[in-house]
Structures are given as structure tokens and as C-alpha cells.
Design a protein around this nucleic acid. Structure first.
Lengths: 130, 130, 130, 130
DNA sequence: GTGGTCTAGACCACA
DNA sequence: GTGGTCTAGACCACC
């Protein structure tokens, strides 16, 4: 699996990494027990600070996606929900609120936004990462 | 019109204010030529620093929602398109990308997210609060 | 590149900074991807408050000249048209109106003003300072 | 002579008034010894604060355009230069600098700006105010 | 190290 | 009364 980061993005690098791993798990590209690159290896590959990779991994451990086997590395954990349904929805709603505000500010109609959301969702999620 | 802010939120206060005004304009609660509260008045009401209100207002001036009449206050501007279509789409996409990342991270499916987006859009934009 | 500010001027410091960067981009002294000094560094150099520099930079982000990579700094953005033609013209006209008022008040003739505008344009934009 | 002010403009109201009188003198619509409306009368006509008119008039007295005959009103003074040539040019240059910065920021070429300046100058100055 | 947000408070221009 | 600019300094997130 290839990892990629977009430097100019507003999405923090650590989250880009976490998202890619999360997505790979969701699509089945990474299965339970699979290993992810070492912190230092991935930092070298992406030419970023190892702390940034470490932060991504530790967030994924906190959310139950990865587990750490000291001295061996990080591995995909068996999937479990760590957030309650309510909590997950609360966090999703927060981002959707942002989208709505932005849409209003940019004078897009609800249907324009919905179409674009659909479009980008298909584009980003149907194509499996390399 | 009543303004409200949530203190502990991840959304900065100045954006909460700008969002509320943006939405009020979108729903017609605020009309062209209407005045918004003075910087100091709103700051007193919300018990926040006037600079924070000023930042919200000046962002709205930059995006063409408000206009400023020096010494008199801020007023709802006639609606006009300030940004190019490309720019508007670029900004919208940026926010949608954030939503997609978030959805993946929270393990929501595309259709779950779409439904929720639809729901919140109707809720926030058609029904006037209070 | 050297940055300079004039303390006693009518032009606010944050605009002097933004103007200098805007001009450097126009003359090619700053190219796409170049970084500008960090907020704190420039504030130290010019012996002003970091917030003042931050305001200049964030204005330039709003107008598409700079982009911000969180935690890394500000960089010259690829040039793109952010505002609609109408909006650009509206803003230009606003400044020209100011010039006309000023000219009348100072009792300059239209041709005197035009000659001076031509002169300063060449002076400031073709010859790179220092 | 009719006086007009544009409320939504960035040009302060007191300066709009001063400019109109200055312009009328320049075009010959107001001659030496002519009276201008009383402070209160003009304030009523324009529906603005009398202080604002008073400020415009006192600026014009300071710059030698008007003279005040206490108890009788304000009159057009015999024209004299109060600013030195250098001082007038310095003030003009300041505004032109602003125009140049704005042009750069809005990505207009020097020739586009010059054409527009010519156009607006003709438009605003050739048509005599009612 | 970087920037982002917010507060408190000063001084000035404009109506 | 209104907003605009600037300073000083705190706390936070991200690299």
C-alpha cells in the first residue's frame, strides 16, 4: 500500500495518514493482523516529521483501529466501535454544520451541495488506493 | 434576532457569529439594508471581546455579506457574487473533503452521511429558529 | 527580500506588509511556493506585534496570494483569480473614486494626475527595488 | 447647487461634501463670495449630523477654500494655495500608491488601470453637478 | 518551531 | 456613539 499526503491541504497531515489507514481497513485493503509501516519508515517515505506519524498512529490506537506490540510495530486491530452511536453522530453533525455554513456563505443551493457530495464520495471511495 | 454562541465548541466564536448571520441572510431573517448589532453591543451581549465580533464582521465584509459605513455600523449588503465559480467550487470541495475524511474515520457509510446531510440541510435552512 | 514599514504613515502597518508582498509577487521577486517569513520572525524584524503580521498574512490568504500550511508557515500560492470580474472592477473603481476626490481636493488637473499615475506605476512595478 | 452624498461609500461623508464644494469652485459653479448653505440647513437636506457638515466646512476653511463670517455664514474665499507644491504632491502620491497596491492585488495591468482612471475622470469631472 | 484564537486595553477617526 | 488599528500576552493545535 502506498501512502500519500497533500501538503497544501487544510487537513492536518496526521489526520491524512490516519484517514488513509482507516479507509484501507474499511475497504478491506488492510485486514486484521496486517502490519503498517514503522513510524520512522513512513516518516522517511513521506518526508515528514516522525512525530507526525507517531501522532497519527497513537490516535488510531486510541480509536481502536491499531494496536501496538512494543518492539514489533503497529498492527490492525480487530474492528470495534469505541465511540457510542451518539458520540459518532455528534462528531459527524459538527462537520456537516460546517459544510452547511460554508454552502450558505458561498451561495450554493442544498441540491448543488448534495450532488457534489455524492460525486466526491464516489470519486474518493470507489477507487481503491494503490 | 438572537445570537448564540457555544463556548466549548471546536468552532471558533468568530465563525459561529459569521455563520449565524450568513444563515439569517440565507433564510431571509436578515434583509438587505438591515443593520447588525454594533461590535461593542454584541460583544457585551455575548460576554466576549469586541475584537472577536470585529473579526467575524470583517470576514463577512470580505465575503460581501456585510458592508461597513464608518461611524454608523455594519449593514447587510445587497447580494452579489464576489468569488469566481472556480473559487467557490474549490472552497466547497475543501469542506466536502473534510466531511469525507471524517465520515471514514467515524465509520459512516456514504449513504448514511448523505441522508444526514439532507436532514440537517432542511432542518437548518427551511425552518426559521425561534 | 527586505521588508520595510513606515511608522508615521496613514497606511496601516498590516497593509504596508501585504502591499510589499503583493508587489513582490507581481514583479516576480517572490515566486510560487516561496515561503514568506514566519509571523513571529517578521514581527521581531520589524519590531511590531505578531498579530499585526498575522492580519496582513490572513488578508493575503483571503485574496488568494498566500496559502497556509498549518505548523509550517505561509507560502506564495499559485496565481488564481479569486474574485469575479465585476467584483474586481468594483473594488478598483472604489479606489479610483478616492483618487479623484483627492485630486480635486488638492487642485490637480486630470492630466497632471494621469501623468503621475503613469510615472509611479513604472517606477514601482518595473524596477525591482534594491 | 444640489449636494449629494453616497451613504455606502468608503469616502467619509464630510469629505464628500468638501470635495463637492472644492469641485464646484474648480469648475466655476461656485464663485468668490458665493455663500454655501448653512450647517444646519445642509444637515437637514442631507439628513446627516450637523457636526459632519461643520467638519467639512471647517476643513475647507483650514485649506482656504471657505471663509467664515460669524453670524452670517460661510463664503467662498478668494482661491489660494495653502499647501506647498511638495506637500500637495506627497498627498497625491500617497493615494496613487494605494491605487497601485490595489491594482496589483486585483491583478489589473497598468494599462487597464490607466484606461479606467481616464474613463472615470472624464465621467465624474466633465458632467457639471446640477 | 509554526500558526490560530481570544482577551484586555489603548489610541484614533468618523458621525 | 460607531469602527479601525495596534499592542501585550495567554492558551491551544500541529509539525
Amino acid at each position: 500500500m502506498r501512502y500519500r499526503i497533500v501538503a497544501g491541504s487544510n487537513v492536518p497531515i496526521f489526520r491524512q495518514i490516519a484517514d488513509q489507514i482507516g479507509r484501507a481497513v474499511a475497504t478491506g485493503d488492510l485486514k486484521i493482523g496486517d502490519s503498517v509501516p514503522s513510524v520512522r519508515q513512513l516518516a522517511r517515505d513521506l518526508v515528514i516529521n516522525p512525530n507526525t506519524v507517531a501522532k497519527a498512529y497513537s490516535d488510531l490506537v486510541a480509536s481502536g483501529v491499531l494496536e501496538n506490540q512494543p518492539g514489533r510495530g503497529y498492527f490492525i486491530n480487530k474492528r470495534r466501535q469505541v465511540f457510542t452511536k451518539t458520540e459518532r453522530l455528534r462528531r459527524l453533525d459538527e462537520t456537516i454544520d460546517l459544510l452547511i455554513s460554508q454552502s450558505v456563505a458561498l451561495d450554493f443551493s442544498a441540491s448543488e451541495v448534495l450532488d457534489r457530495v455524492k460525486e466526491l464520495f464516489t470519486q474518493k471511495l470507489s477507487v481503491a488506493p494503490e
